[in-house]
């Protein structure tokens, strides 16, 4: 059987240093999240490896994995129900909360795969936004930018070796974005600290010179 076109490239992507997942792979993982659909056909319950879904009856909402919902939607066999948090009003509210916490640099709780799910739905099931697609797109982008700027300003506070950095409510895509920088910075801090421990005070000059290159 031919591999589905959207997963085909997954394995061919060259890994790039600390960048663990490609955006495509993150979307692939996000496609396992459950979503509600309204079927336009009837069928019995079917057994997937990840659990049973169905039975399908016209107009009766049912929970399915996102990838399956998209396949059905492609064939116009269902209507994809927007997750509650992706409704326009809810997005406006989320953005307000995100803005309110701007000073504290605190990320508000959000779906782990929110960017991926939103992007997938914008691209492949835009009709589920009931005409609000354009506006919702802007809201999601705004939320994304607010969160990114919070992450960037808090990274600026990182000035010396820290054995562990906690980031509350960070999402998959955000982790992926800061990974190359944060991992490299922490590794560098660690090497410097090890050198310092080893040579004591005398290493000060070495650290100064290496610091310049950071």
């Amino acid at each position: 059987m031919a591999a589905p076109s959207e997963t085909k490239e997954l394995y061919g992507i060259k890994q790039n240093g600390e960048m663990c997942f490609s955006a495509k792979e993150l979307e692939f993982l996000a496609e396992d999240e459950m979503i509600e659909i309204i079927p336009r056909f009837s069928f019995q319950e079917i057994g997937l490896l990840s659990g049973s879904i169905g039975p399908f009856q016209p107009m009766v909402p049912v929970q399915v994995p996102l990838w399956l919902a998209l396949k059905l939607h492609e064939r116009q066999m269902c209507k994809v129900q927007l997750p509650a948090w992706l409704h326009h009003d809810e997005l406006v509210e989320r953005k307000r909360e995100e803005e309110a916490e701007k000073e504290n640099k605190y990320l508000t709780p959000i779906e782990f795969h929110y960017q991926e799910i939103a992007t997938i739905l914008f691209r492949r099931a835009p009709d589920s936004f009931a005409g609000q697609e354009g506006n919702s797109r802007i809201q999601v982008k705004d939320i994304e930018e607010l969160r990114d700027s919070k992450i960037h300003t808090s990274l600026r506070d990182l000035e010396q070796y820290t054995p562990a950095v906690k980031i509350a409510n960070v999402s998959a895509m955000e982790i992926n974005k800061i990974r190359p920088f944060l991992v490299q910075a922490l590794n560098r801090f660690r090497t410097l600290k090890e050198a310092e421990d080893q040579f004591g005070e005398s290493s000060q000059t070495v650290i100064d010179s290496q610091d310049g290159g950071l």
């Binding site: 054995p163 562990a164 950095v165 906690k166 980031i167 509350a168 409510n169 960070v170 982790i175 944060l182 991992v183 922490l186 660690r190």
Partner: peptide, 8 residues
């Protein structure tokens, strides 16, 4: 549970 940490 639920925390995200970057560590060695």
């Amino acid at each position: 549970s639920g925390d995200f940490v970057c560590m060695k």
